[in-house]
Amino acid sequence: MSAAQEALPAVRGSRDATVRRFALTDSIFHGLTRAAAILVLVLLGGVAISLFAGSWQALSTFGFSFLTTESWNPVTEKFGALAPIYGTIVTSAIAILIAVPLGIGIAIFLTELCPRPLRRPIGMAVELLAGIPSIIYGIWGLFVLAPFLQTTVQPFIISVFHGIPGLSSLFAGPPYGIGLLTSSLILAIMVLPFITSITKDVFDTVPPVLKESAYGIGCTTWEVTRRVVIPYTRIGIMGGVMLGLGRALGETMAVTFVIGNAHRISTSLFAPATTISATIANEFTEAVGDLYTSSLVALGLILFVITFLILAIARYMLMRIDARTGA
């Protein structure tokens, strides 16, 4: 027997040991990742069950009227979630309407138009906005933004739209400074860096050859952005918008400072209002009685459901976009 034939069993044994070691590490890695995914589902289910159990007394007492009643009176224990739901949806919607065009515009400027030496400083400045604590935004909104709106912006808007059907009621009332519009502006500033950063990152993933080809056939920067960059990255843009919307829906402290915390619904954007998060933050420590506490937990359950539905709709929209792109 030759030396090569004598060494063959040892080589095969070493190879088999290596394969078994790789298979073991792969199975361990697979098990850990699967356990992490299951843990996320367990935590999500635990949160949902806890919220439902804590809110059962309020839901069984008031029924469906809890969602359609504006009254919120802890003295008589009459609770309705309509006003906080209205404030949450309106402030988040206005914030997104303001932040999305600004965020996409800033991202386009940073990736397509900004001089190269300024890209990094401006990008870092935008990202630093995301690191400011929400309570700082609230203090700034209460002591700086709200007085400015009260003395300058709101009186001007009220006088301009006075007597115009529809707009007069939308911008009516005394200029409080605080209210739906002020909290929406604060939320827009808070979600702007998230939308901008994600949009800028996905814009950077566009292959340069696509843009160069478009420029080569005579397209302008606007045409390249509109017909190449945005269609190529629309799924990422949608993800950034949904992340910003989720932040706006759940924001608490900044909104609590400037929204006015009034449990009523008004057509005017200048009127004080409240949100689900602000109501829970303001009243949970002072809740006396099981029904009061259960009503606040029910508000948390409603916010959970609203966020889940919005994210589910966003996911469905992304799937439709993928399907159309694939087709």
Results as ranks from 00 to 15, higher is better:
29 F>V: 14
158 I>K: 10
87 G>V: 10
204 D>T: 04
280 I>F: 07
258 V>K: 08
244 G>P: 07
275 T>N: 02
91 T>W: 04
195 I>V: 13
184 S>N: 09
269 L>Y: 09
101 P>W: 00
258 V>C: 08
310 I>A: 14
122 I>C: 02
182 T>M: 08
160 V>H: 14
131 G>T: 08
150 Q>I: 05
136 I>E: 02
257 F>E: 04
107 A>K: 02
183 S>V: 11
229 V>G: 00
164 I>V: 13
264 R>S: 15
134 S>A: 14
196 T>H: 05
72 W>P: 04
70 E>A: 11
163 G>E: 10
10 A>L: 10
19 V>M: 09
224 V>K: 02
190 M>I: 15
215 Y>M: 06
235 I>R: 10
323 A>G: 08
238 M>R: 01
205 T>F: 01
205 T>V: 04
183 S>I: 04
54 G>T: 01
75 V>H: 06
142 L>W: 08
58 A>T: 09
23 A>L: 13
173 G>W: 01
194 F>D: 05
68 T>S: 14
227 R>S: 10
39 L>E: 15
136 I>T: 11
65 S>Y: 08
117 P>V: 00
47 V>Y: 06
137 Y>G: 02
184 S>D: 12
99 A>G: 01
231 P>E: 01
63 G>T: 09
53 A>K: 10
123 G>W: 13
84 P>C: 08
134 S>C: 09
157 I>E: 01
130 A>F: 04
319 M>S: 13
174 P>C: 03
187 L>P: 02
278 A>Q: 08
217 I>C: 02
36 A>P: 01
127 E>T: 15
257 F>W: 13
14 S>M: 10
289 G>P: 06
37 A>L: 07
295 S>L: 02
